[in-house]
Design a protein around this nucleic acid. Sequence first.
DNA 1: AAAAATCCTGACTGATCGGTCAACATAAGG
DNA 2: CCTTATGTTGACCGATCAGTCAGGATTTTT
Lengths: 216, 216
Amino acid sequence: MLTENSARASQSKKRTRIQIENEERILDAALDVFSSFGFRGATVDQIAERAGMSKPNLLYYFRRKQDIYVAVLTRTLENWLTPLGALDPDGEPEAEIRAYVGQKLALSRDAPMESRLFANEVLQGAPMLGPLLATDLKEIVDAKAAVLAGWIAAGKLAAVDPVHLIFMIWAMTQHYADFDTQIQAVTGRGVATDAATFERARETVDQILFRGILPR
Amino acid sequence: MLTENSARASQSKKRTRIQIENEERILDAALDVFSSFGFRGATVDQIAERAGMSKPNLLYYFRRKQDIYVAVLTRTLENWLTPLGALDPDGEPEAEIRAYVGQKLALSRDAPMESRLFANEVLQGAPMLGPLLATDLKEIVDAKAAVLAGWIAAGKLAAVDPVHLIFMIWAMTQHYADFDTQIQAVTGRGVATDAATFERARETVDQILFRGILPR
DNA sequence: AAAAATCCTGACTGATCGGTCAACATAAGG
DNA sequence: CCTTATGTTGACCGATCAGTCAGGATTTTT
């Protein structure tokens, strides 16, 4: 976990009611703006306007633009990795993976901005959370890849590289959030707005993935 | 003089040897910078420095930053859609799709910057080539989806939504270019630098995809 | 209610960016 | 050769940006 980057909180005083409210409003606005334009493309004025406050006031809570960015990144990271952490080594492989894929797809529908925030960051070389990827992310991926390897060894899954399988699940599910613009341009409907499109996406992912990895 | 200057790159006046050379150097540099930082994050100075020329000289060839951007986008778009266009309705489904996936994966290895350029553009709502997606891209996707639908109707492919199948192929293959940073952080090796990682990626995509879509 | 701590803002600054311009340099064509 | 068209640059400009600051407003604490 990264350190708290709020100006106030870092001064080790108790957080007031107004601080809690405003910091949350700022982070919500920052998620919106950063996920749309990336770090360098976003402006503090944009975030301040969306948060409904003046720029100096925003900078009273987060002294630097970068502080807002890493705060919203770390706030989201936890929710983002939770589904993978929930993958139970003692569960049934098909049910466990199906649940995981379902949760990731639901996240692409319900929290596309979070997905695009990370996509922007990683796409540009992960300048901020690069170190975190090599430690925290690698750790959980290695752990869950070992679980998958166990299932493969037990003959409950087809012999696929476990790490790449995780990559493939990420690719298939997050694609519907990150490339929503493209999908809307081609199909006229997005996964976030149209329930039928979401259902079609879910069916396709399920069909390809589970016919691909379940033993025959 | 003014209009001639503004569209020097796109207009078909006789192009000098120096023009051809410099415009290519500029576009190469622009691909590098834009794919790393996105449109708003990139600076003209960066592109000029990477192209080995002064900023005013670069702006002599492309009067606006946006002109460089759309030029490099459109130059790449053709190469990017070529593999899908090569999908032959009269060929054997498995061989055709296998060739297409192989070409897309090779592009992720050999031309990751192009992939990231488009990913950045689409991720931020495709402000420049949005209209082009709804026309050209939709057209070719619809055409090739019809081919896939024909193969499904002939019982040569499992019943998957053809458009979403195309999305899945894009997601699985481009993931290795767009999220290379993340993959390197987790595995220590990237698909562009390490041949073994590329081979593992290819095997995984092949295995999941073709067990998933080929009739049993 | 008074004091103290917290919250908020208009006005500003220095840096950076996209883009211009006048003048100079080089190449092309006769 | 000389003339013309093309190529190149340092210096500059207005706009925008992140971040500062002094001081006033509001809330909390005593």
